[in-house]
Design a protein around this nucleic acid. Sequence first.
DNA 1: AATAATACCTGACTACAGTCAGATAAATGC
DNA 2: GCATTTATCTGACTGTAGTCAGGTATTATT
Lengths: 293, 293
Amino acid sequence: MHLGQISQLRSFNRAITRRIGALGNRFVGRDRPMAESRMLYEIGQQGQEVRRLRQRMALDSGYASRLLRALEHQGLITVAPLPEDRRARFASLTDAGRRELAETDRAADDAVADILAPLDPGRRARLTGVLAEAERLIEASAVTFETVAPTSREVAACLEHYYDELDRHFATGFIPPPSVAEEIAGLTPPSGWILLARLYDEPVGCGTLTAQADFGEIKRVWIAERLRGLGLSRRLLAELENVACVAGFSRLRLDTNESLAEAQALYRSSGYHEIARFNDNPYAHHWFEKRLT
Amino acid sequence: MHLGQISQLRSFNRAITRRIGALGNRFVGRDRPMAESRMLYEIGQQGQEVRRLRQRMALDSGYASRLLRALEHQGLITVAPLPEDRRARFASLTDAGRRELAETDRAADDAVADILAPLDPGRRARLTGVLAEAERLIEASAVTFETVAPTSREVAACLEHYYDELDRHFATGFIPPPSVAEEIAGLTPPSGWILLARLYDEPVGCGTLTAQADFGEIKRVWIAERLRGLGLSRRLLAELENVACVAGFSRLRLDTNESLAEAQALYRSSGYHEIARFNDNPYAHHWFEKRLT
DNA sequence: AATAATACCTGACTACAGTCAGATAAATGC
DNA sequence: GCATTTATCTGACTGTAGTCAGGTATTATT
């Protein structure tokens, strides 16, 4: 990696830290401890489960409890047991809490407006433009890949998006065969693997590897639309190949629909070459294979 | 201002905060309080005056003193009186302190490298590229303008750069006339004003306004090279016009050398029109005037 | 039905961040 | 020469952040 790139990123970090405010200044300034402000922010207008709050803020349960008690005492939130699991609790903003959050939000808007104000409209637009692009790249670099069990709710959510999208794109539409649920359920080593892409806690992509007679078959490669064009499909594919390699496969195969031109380009540029039909997938028009070294 | 721009910047801030590490995480992780780490960083390889450290970190003198004692006690720094003012003290790193700072630095490099690593080389270059541009724009937006006294050392530093640059650019070279020091010294209201541009504490530009018989004369408009192309000269000029307006001038005049094409373009696009020679400046080739409303 | 795990709470604690009220020594202004 | 200012230090203090060791109520597991 180029050393200049590292120092550039560090330099940028210094600049924005200095300008936007040393720490998470977006949470201070309403004469309330930062942790309380952040808690209010994380609870949000719709409220949130306490365990999710603890998880997202990485808090000790005792500390979290005390923060919630303090906000409750200030009349900003209410906390009630969840109906479906009365051990767990759900925190919601009161009207006063809503007002407080809106006020904090307005203050943050003002702080940001003060940063943009000195720039002329052209440079203002340019700054927001490059930051939008930088944000996407930074998010892309934060995406991680992990093999998960077929029972994962996150995978189910991804696959739902995936099938939905196929239905919209395929000229013939797409109806998942009834066998799909069973097929997914069988994707556990050594007969199958499911790879999940996550951006922080959010599932943003998936892909599966199925053990066939004498090759591995890659299917259901999907990346969330808002993260496309960032090279994540290629990384996901590479991760799947890595899983296949470790599992001892020497050949990988996959198929694709004629409507998915980008997917075909990805496979070709990743070392896959087109072969004859090897399965009876009625939605497939092209079949590919790659030998692993 | 466009509301989308504000939310874009806030969104970016969340993204980078999340990725780079909530607070100035570049200072933690060496199991040492953040304030001590930051102090080490601010002292730097060349050392620093204690009063400057206090100023830059905005610390209570008692707190600063304690931090320095702690670092001294750990054998990381030494603090000695300044020879020229034995009230003030100067903090320097010991060899151990130097090693510690280098180690912290390396850790920060590693953290940043981890962020860039998942991206392919093209996107990595693109990210650092857009962040470099964003950094310049953010710095530009942080520049402030202030009228200062002619005795200011900051102004002297700017003017030195300015004259140096004229000497390099003018076909004939440039030698400041002997009267210059006296002229600068006279720039106090109501006969003159000096405007200084600052980026945080650093002087990055200047401009002067001199009261003449029946007009105000703008001279010595200069912006540091590293901040050019960011619209700062235009802002500086506008600020000078503002000063002139408040002071009651109805006309402004200025001159410029033929070699300074950008300056001429700036003046024309800022409402100045070319007039006949109005002074005997031997280095001037163009003379401009603008009527203030 | 007994056991374990989960979600949360309380009390006691440590460490860090930051402030305030003086005190001292050196330099500056008159 | 004396008062004032500047730069720093010390002691005493408050509030926030965060941890740890238990405890209770509810749900899941066997």
